[in-house]
Design a protein around this nucleic acid. Structure first.
Lengths: 147, 147
DNA sequence: GTTGACCTTCCCATCCTGTCAAGGTTTACA
DNA sequence: TGTAAACCTTGACAGGATGGGAAGGTCAAC
């Protein structure tokens, strides 16, 4: 099976399959005489596994660990569960960060007339919180980047 | 004021100040004879504004819009409010995606013994959901990337 | 005058994904 | 058989926001 077929069958783009191969997440595929990568159903199976894990927000590094356990038929389920729950904790931390932003923005917006007048507590707060107004959630922390 | 001072006073790293200048988010700073960038209190004020907006998860693009409104003393507060609420919607969409992952993972983990035995419904699901088991949240969608 | 802290520019890396280009291969069809 | 379309290959570049480091110039304190 060529890479295009494998991509369609697994839901992982051809580009990403090559990328995963280049970083060693998956072994280098067998090549045809013409140099085309050739995939088996089993390879597609692995790619689907990777795709599902990505959908659950696992990083490539996390997937590396999951794949190792997946291939290790004698693994302890505790190891898998630990990785999953650690990931849950990471996701929940991120959710709390985002929720803090949402809360702050909503509080600011609720005090904004939202009409033609220029006065706006949202800008006033960004300007430098001097008055009472809605408080920021928790201690100053690095942003989590653009969303 | 040198860039280091401005960075410390605003909470934006020197590295990022130069970057913001390079992409045009802030105007190029005046230079001393030696070529050092020189900042005023007003510049620091702007940088603090940017820093606060970043903490609220605004992208550089979003901040560009906010800065324009901030500088426009005749702006309508409705414009600011709209940007803020659009951003809230974006954040909430992201939160829902992450929460869906958390729900799925928790459901899978709750069915995992988490002991020395190799059987693990988490891997079984990633393997290819064949049985009933916890359902994925909503239609198949692109992952949101590593977290 | 020396030393250390600061500044400059430029390059590289991250992380995952997409796009484009230039060229070779396979397949389908007239 | 010829040709066109669809596929494959590698490589490069992009993005978004940030950090790190190297090589070299400048300033301030002692």
């Amino acid at each position: 099976m060529n890479i295009g077929k494998a991509a369609a069958a697994s839901g992982v783009s051809a580009k990403m399959i090559r990328y995963y191969e280049s970083i060693g997440l998956i072994p280098a595929a067998r090549r045809t005489d013409a140099g085309y990568r050739a995939y088996t159903e089993e390879d597609v199976h692995v790619l689907r596994f990777i795709r599902r894990a990505r959908d659950l927000g696992f990083s490539v590094e996390g997937i590396t660990g999951l794949l190792a356990l997946w291939h290790d038929k004698g693994r302890a389920s505790a190891d898998v569960k630990r990785i999953a729950l650690e990931h849950v904790a990471t996701l929940e931390r991120k959710i709390r960060e985002l929720q803090g932003m949402v809360d702050t923005l909503k509080a600011l917006a609720s005090h904004c007339h939202g009409d033609h007048r220029p006065d706006c507590p949202i800008l006033a707060d960004l300007d430098g919180p001097t008055g009472p107004g809605p408080q920021r959630t928790g201690p100053r922390q690095r942003g989590i980047g653009p969303v």
